[in-house]
Amino acid sequence: MHTYSRRRFAVAALACAVAFAGNPAAEAGAGLRTRGEQVVDEARKRYLVPDARVKADVDVLRSALGEVKRGRSVAFNLNAGRARIASALGVLGRAADAEAVLAQWAGLVADRARAGSSSYLDRERRFFGAFTTPLAVLAQKYPNSQAKYWLKNTPAQVLDVVFAAATPDLPADQLYAYAYLEGLVDYVRDRIGLGKKAGDPTDAQLRSVSVTGPIFGYDYLGTDRFFLDMYASRVPGRNFLPYDPGRVVLDTRRNEKGTLVESALFPSLTAGLQGEAAMLRRRRALFLADARAYGYATPTRDELVYWTYVYYNVGEFNGQLKKYAGRRRLGDWMAKGEYPNSIKALESWRMLRDMAIFPR
């Protein structure tokens, strides 16, 4: 399992893969939105688009204030700022606050000679704080979350496959968080041809991503030990897999520790996510068994999300529960920020939960 991109090999391999046209969305009735489309639409309408529009207005305001502080085009920038304030507050649904915020803006412009003083900087912070978006509030609440970046890089058809691979004991929002943290976001961007430093994909680029071509689990899903999990003696992973593991092609790789691992080349994204889900469900079952065996309380949903990823990312033999049996609670590791990758998974999932964009 990994939380960094293994893209150099994968990009070259994808260029050789045969991609067939296909989209689970086509299975939906005419005029009906798929679940993936619903989530993407809600994320954009309620969070991503308002955040981008307000950011554009705030960028202009910051630039205008910078010009004002230097004594340049003061009257012009004063009026330009007023227009942007009205625009941003309108997007945020806070037009009623316009009078107070406009007064703050006028005060900053009038007192520009005091720019740099502690009192001026405090007023400036309060002024720009008026444009905090719902997405920014969540990002501040969950600083380790990657959900914003993921949602910008989520095609509806990929999310439809996530829903198809999800199960009652591994819901779609959790599988999405784990899969995107393991590299599914890189799969999307690589299929489009976007480098790590490139900007956000366009809607047309997202729609172009195929979900029917083969996918390397080692590169994009973190299924490094797929076959080891599937044929394990303790809770075999194949018990959670809806198809015969023999359908999957063995893909032997040398991981970051120099160890040879038996990963998988899956025939499609659906098969790949089902394989990852089977591994996650197996690791979750192992965690629950260990928690019971060592006398821990029944885990909360947050603890379940966190510890599932500890067992998936760090490994099933991490030994933490046995080592601290009777001395620590399951939430202690979370509270202390231990296992940073699992904290990322937890905070990303919490942010998605608070956004309430996934159907319950």
Rank of each mutant, 00 (worst) to 15 (best):
L92Y: 12
Y243Q: 11
G195N: 09
R350T: 02
R254T: 15
A110S: 13
S268D: 12
G107P: 12
Y187P: 04
K344L: 09
G213N: 02
Y296A: 02
T132G: 13
A356S: 12
R125Q: 15
D302T: 01
S145P: 02
P242F: 06
G331N: 07
Y47H: 05
F20K: 08
R84P: 01
K336N: 06
G22S: 09
S348R: 03
D59P: 03
Y142I: 05
L108R: 06
A26F: 14
N144S: 14
Y176V: 02
R72D: 07
D290K: 13
T212S: 11
W105T: 07
G258F: 03
Q146P: 00
W105I: 10
Q274A: 10
T300Y: 08
V305S: 02
K45W: 10
A28Q: 12
Y47M: 03
L32T: 13
L265S: 09
V209W: 10
A130Q: 14
N318W: 02
S117A: 14
G31P: 03
D186F: 10
N23S: 15
R189F: 08
I192G: 05
A147K: 10
G29S: 11
M355I: 11
A297K: 07
V188A: 04
A271Q: 11
L159T: 03
G193A: 08
G36P: 06
Y306S: 02
V211T: 15
A75Y: 04
G222T: 06
